[in-house]
Amino acid sequence: MTTTPRPAETTASGAPAEAADARPTDWPLWEVFVRSRRGLSHTHAGSLHAPDAEMALRNARDLYTRRSEGVSLWVVPSAQITASSPDEKDAFFEPAGDKPYRHPTFYEIPEGVHHL
């Protein structure tokens, strides 16, 4: 392998390199969603880095479907995801918990009645 002329920026021991944010080599993060087979929805599988969407898709194919785990892939820039509130168990979801009448098990049906 040929060697590159690039000097080792971080090899000096103890040189603080943590502040190296947004270096050009720092590819953005993408979230990967895999449809494991027809009829199922895409499910979040994990994330990866890629310079752009096309490469993200290819990297996702190589990484997340190398054992035939999928028939379709989505990749989304992680930064583009809008999430619900930071605390995932708060008022945003609790109100749904006291509406049991939305679930079929709420209702009593006499024995012997079918197809309901």
């Binding site: 590819w27 990866l48 880095h49 890629a50 490469m55 290819r58 990297n59 190589d62 990484l63 190398r66």
Partner: peptide
């Protein structure tokens, strides 16, 4: 050059 490419080249 990057971990993702390890996987691609090996494939």
């Amino acid at each position: 050059p990057v971990l993702e490419e390890e996987v691609a080249l090996a494939n």
